[in-house]
């Protein structure tokens, strides 16, 4: 019986196995200590005890597969949303190509996360789980013309991308994710791609859906309809003020789906790591616009707050996100 072969096999379906165990080294220690005392017949009992301990849920903290499945749910939302782009009218060809590119990325993210999770992955919720009008299944929500109107569609796209960026950022410091460097690095490598998408969607909105040089639009305060490529303050409430405000607001900083010692503040936060950032913090900041200090940092969100936002686009009766509420 090779204990480490077992661990390797488990790692294929549960990338967190080493994180669940105290550490690889401590298993070595346990094994060498007990090896002399246990007979070969008793060894399976010992192994069973190790895993019973490892798989007991830590109260208030999500296991890595829970976080990965949460990410997968968000990627499904994005994937099915971008599949709805084909009936849009009035998009420049460069903008249509960009949406195709993003659609490919989101589908790849779904595929990737399913591969990492293996049999632990949730079932495909299918397109029927979502109502991107925000109507909970009635298709008559505040974004009801999203299939054809690119202004509405891009407002939703920005909202989903910015939410995704905040979600990955907020989940990265959760202890089960930090304990698994492979998962953490993969999550970071998705996080930055979502941020690139967000930046580009914002450029498209800034210049206009039918514009062929989206990078040349000029941002206009309060940045709701002509946003910068980054969040400025709370962007005047986001793409649709009154409906999208929560995407730029504060989260919950305790309970399941939060990281230890992390405070989930609104996007206009200008205190980072205990350092208050204003024009007087450093001589080099003299004359800087006050909005620059919050713009320079994105903020994360906890799982529950993200789930609350995402749940607005799920049909009534589907628990895709409500399980986290």
């Amino acid at each position: 019986m090779n204990f480490f072969d077992i661990l390797s096999e488990i790692e294929k379906v549960d990338p967190e196995v080493y994180g669940r165990l105290d550490s690889r080294r401590s298993i070595f220690k346990h094994m060498s200590g007990v090896g002399q005392k246990l007979t070969a017949a008793a060894l399976p009992l010992f192994v069973g005890a190790v895993f019973n301990k490892a798989y007991a849920q830590t109260p208030g903290s999500l296991a890595v597969n829970d976080v990965l499945n949460f990410a997968l749910r968000l990627e499904y939302l994005e994937m099915y949303f971008y599949q709805q782009r084909t009936a849009l009218t009035g998009l420049s060809s460069v903008n249509a190509s960009a949406l195709s590119l993003i659609a490919t990325d989101e589908a790849n993210h779904v595929k990737f996360l399913r591969g990492v999770l293996g049999s632990a992955a949730i079932n495909d919720p299918t397109a029927a789980a979502f109502d991107f009008s925000g109507g909970k299944g009635t298709a008559t929500g505040p974004f009801s013309d999203y299939r054809t109107n690119p202004v509405t569609y891009l407002a939703l796209a920005q909202s989903f991308e910015d939410t995704g960026v905040r979600a990955y950022k907020g989940a990265a410091p959760i202890s089960s994710v930090m304990a698994n460097k492979t998962v953490l690095t993969a999550a970071l490598n998705i996080h930055s791609v979502e941020a690139r998408h967000a930046s580009h969607i914002r450029a498209m909105r800034r210049a206009g859906a039918n514009n062929s040089t989206p990078s040349q639009g000029v941002a206009v305060s309060p940045y709701s309809s002509a946003p910068k490529s980054w969040v400025s303050g709370t962007d005047g409430g986001g793409a649709v003020p009154g409906t999208t405000n929560a995407i730029y607001g504060a989260g919950n900083s305790s309970g399941a789906g939060t990281a230890a010692n992390v405070t989930y503040l609104a996007e206009d936060n200008n205190v980072q790591g205990g350092v208050t950032l204003t024009t007087s913090t450093s001589p080099a900041f003299s004359g800087f616009p006050t909005t620059a200090f919050s713009e320079a940092f994105d903020e994360g969100l906890d799982v529950k707050t993200v789930a609350t936002i995402a749940n607005l686009f799920v049909v009534t009766g589907n628990n895709l996100f409500s399980v986290y509420l």
Partner: peptide, 27 residues
């Protein structure tokens, strides 16, 4: 968490700079 707050800003920068070089090259 702070590194995460900064890297997404760098990614937003990178995307728009790439678009300035060549439209639609953000990823």
């Amino acid at each position: 968490y702070i590194a995460g707050k900064i890297v997404s800003i760098e990614a937003r920068h990178a995307a728009i700079i790439r678009d300035l070089v060549k439209e639609g090259d953000f990823v």
